[in-house]
């Protein structure tokens, strides 16, 4: 009984984090982006500097009519947002936050679990793109698929490099075996992982699949109301997950001064800094063209990640 209660409590905590952290990232994006462009951003909702803007947005989305286009494939169209969102919730469960089992649920092959489940999330975009019966959605879906196939590989290779270094696939295990010099050792891998992750989330500058100036909003063009909000939530949950994973794999998770007591704070802090970088990149860079995207993945990221794997292997053999 006590065990069950424990598990339920952990899951509830993860759920709360899942609902709160993406909103935090979204609000930060509103404000940071505004100030980077010399604006103020939302100032009214909630009173103090518009802190409740996203809550207001949520209320607005809930009030909107839920339209399904007449020619659309109803079932798949309606199912797509859930398929896009749920995987991130699952991933959040296994990301370790602090030492001593401060994690939703430790999974043995956690690294593979995370990568596998994140890959499923993209199916949501594909389903949405196809089922909308809209040429822009279809183009968006195609671009999503092409981008996913190109960037999945470097991401996997980079993650595999860390797993090799740590000698385990479990996420808490990887953090436990972390030393500070790993960040330098795995620097290339970390950059590749983060970049490829951005591309998988379709964040600028890799947002060709939702390029508004060309294909309106890609696969999500036909969505309204809550379903649209779910897609947006999936994007921000994706940012949280990506930053959390990068923290855990490459930045040493909870390691830092007084890790024993405030380790979880370190994890959150590193994640927040990474999330800030995600926003910063969005504001600073223009969108890559489709051919540039593909070229970048195949001729830059994959070679770098292969070099990283070779480096990891050599260092591992030499030091052991």
């Amino acid at each position: 009984m006590n065990d069950t209660l424990h598990v339920v409590l952990r899951l509830v905590a993860v759920l709360v984090a899942f609902l709160v952290l993406p909103l935090l990232v979204g609000q930060t994006e509103h404000k940071v982006m505004a100030h980077m462009q010399g604006r103020l951003g939302p100032m009214y909702a909630g009173g103090f500097h518009g802190w409740a803007q996203l809550v207001a947005d949520g209320v607005k989305f809930a009030q909107k009519e839920d339209v399904v286009p007449a020619d659309a494939d109803r079932r798949i169209f309606q199912l797509a947002p859930a398929v896009a969102l749920l995987p991130y919730l699952l991933v959040l469960i296994v990301i370790p936050v602090g030492p001593h089992g401060f994690v939703g649920e430790a999974v043995d092959a956690g690294l593979f679990f995370v990568l596998a489940v994140m890959g499923v999330g993209v199916l949501g975009s594909l389903m949405a793109g196809w089922a909308s019966a809209n040429k822009f959605s279809l183009l968006g879906g195609l671009r999503t698929a092409a981008q996913l196939m190109a960037y999945e590989l470097p991401m996997l290779l980079a993650a595999a490099s860390v797993a090799m270094a740590a000698g385990t696939l479990s996420l808490p295990g990887i953090v436990e075996s972390y030393h500070w010099w790993w960040t330098l050792w795995q620097l290339m891998g970390g950059l590749v992982f983060f970049t490829a992750g951005l591309a998988e989330l379709q964040r600028p500058p890799f947002d060709m699949p939702v390029a508004d100036s060309e294909i309106i909003f890609g696969a999500y063009t036909e969505y309204t109301g809550l379903r649209f909000a779910l897609f947006l939530l999936a994007e921000y949950a994706g940012i949280v997950v990506l930053c959390g994973l990068t923290t855990v794999l490459f930045l040493g998770g909870w390691h830092g001064p007084w890790a024993g007591s405030v380790g979880w704070l370190w994890t959150l802090l590193k994640t927040a800094v990474l999330a800030f970088i995600v926003i910063w990149l969005r504001v600073s860079y223009p969108r890559l063209r489709e051919d540039q995207l593909m070229k970048f993945a195949w001729t830059v990221l994959i070679p770098i990640s292969l070099v990283q794997i070779a480096l990891t292997g050599v260092v591992k053999v030499v030091t052991s």
Partner: peptide
């Protein structure tokens, strides 16, 4: 050039914004 772009946005962030609060 990439670094310069990042620097520009970061610098703008630290400056006072020009929004008119009508």
């Amino acid at each position: 050039g990439l670094a310069k772009g990042l620097a520009v946005t970061l610098r703008t962030m630290t400056r006072k914004s020009v929004t008119a609060r009508y």
